[in-house]
Design a binder for these strands. Structure first.
Length: 283
DNA sequence: GTCCAGGATCGGA
DNA sequence: TCCGATCATGGA
């Protein structure tokens, strides 16, 4: 880790870099020596935080404004959103307290879609391992990657075109299991241009859902995650086994949130609450 | 050995 | 439309 990396310092309330980057919406960040380290949008950076004071190493003002400001969703008032969602479902209050610093990341659409295809019926450490291997083998070197302590983190996420060339057997060697076939299908479809990410960006959410779900290996949960974390559709509400359990027990009123403007953020609050109180939700 | 993981697909009711 | 079986893999 180099202290010669250029950096940008910002103030941000209601934000925790660590909580946000370990909240299960992304799989490529690692905490190292008090910093969150990772690559997105082709650039390797390290994020250090003291209270409301956030320093991003490996960026300059231009990249900060064009990339990281949006990636971390710094311009949104999460205090206000917390107020709105707890008004819709008061039992969310405690969860919103746990997750007070969690933002919804604006990740790259392809990386998000691909990552959540791998995530199905899988656990987070294994998902991270598989994605790391994909990046190591088929990613490009990120700008600033020479500062990374880990070679996997120094690589960009592979393009759909790159993964479309990889054999299904190779994906199995990386531990993808039966998801290897899905990964091949999705990569080839996207590389072929079967779906247009530029159009998806502006398409009505329901149409975007249908288009994503037309891909083999993309069901309701994966499509919802891609839209929430990769396309900034904050109304999207991914339901996995944990969220389903929570909606059936502690947050029975949570279904009221579905379809509301910030449902996805409320969902993230619930996910964070479960993550910190697993004993309440284990089978 | 069994159970589980940020699920999707398929076939049959 | 809905339900259950099945799908690899590795860690607990």
């Amino acid at each position: 880790m180099s202290e010669k990396m250029p950096s940008v310092e910002v103030e941000c309330r209601n934000f925790s870099a660590k909580d946000t980057l370990t909240s299960g919406q992304c799989f490529r960040w690692t905490e190292r020596e008090g910093r969150m380290c990772g690559t997105a949008f082709g650039r390797y950076v390290e994020v250090e935080q003291n209270g409301n004071h956030v320093t991003i190493f490996g960026t300059d003002e231009k990249d900060y404004n064009e990339i990281w400001r949006k990636y971390f969703d710094f311009d949104r008032d999460y205090g206000e959103i917390k107020r709105i969602v707890t008004e819709l479902e008061p039992r969310l209050y405690e969860a919103a307290e746990y997750a007070a610093g969690v933002h919804i990341l604006a990740q790259e659409p392809w990386e998000t879609l691909c990552s959540f295809v791998i995530s199905q019926n899988n656990n987070i450490p294994r998902i991270r391992g598989i994605i790391r291997k994909l990046c190591l083998n088929y990613g490009e070197r990120a700008i600033g990657g020479e500062n990374a302590a880990d070679e996997g983190e120094a690589k960009t996420f592979p393009t759909a075109e790159a993964l479309a060339e990889v054999s299904e057997e190779k994906f199995k060697e990386f531990g993808c299991g039966y998801r290897a076939a899905y990964l091949t299908a999705v990569s080839q479809s996207v590389a072929r241009g079967d779906i247009d990410f530029e159009y998806l960006r502006s398409a009505p959410t329901d149409e975007a859902r249908k288009m994503l779900r037309s891909l083999k290996g993309v069901g309701p949960k994966v499509a919802e995650c891609a839209l929430l974390y990769g396309f900034g559709r904050l109304e999207c509400f991914p339901v996995d086994v944990w969220i389903r359990r929570a909606l059936e027990t502690e947050f029975t009123g949570g279904t009221e949130l579905i379809g509301s403007e910030f449902a996805g953020i409320a969902q993230q609050y619930i996910f964070e609450y479960i993550r910190r109180n697993p004993e309440k939700f284990s089978k």
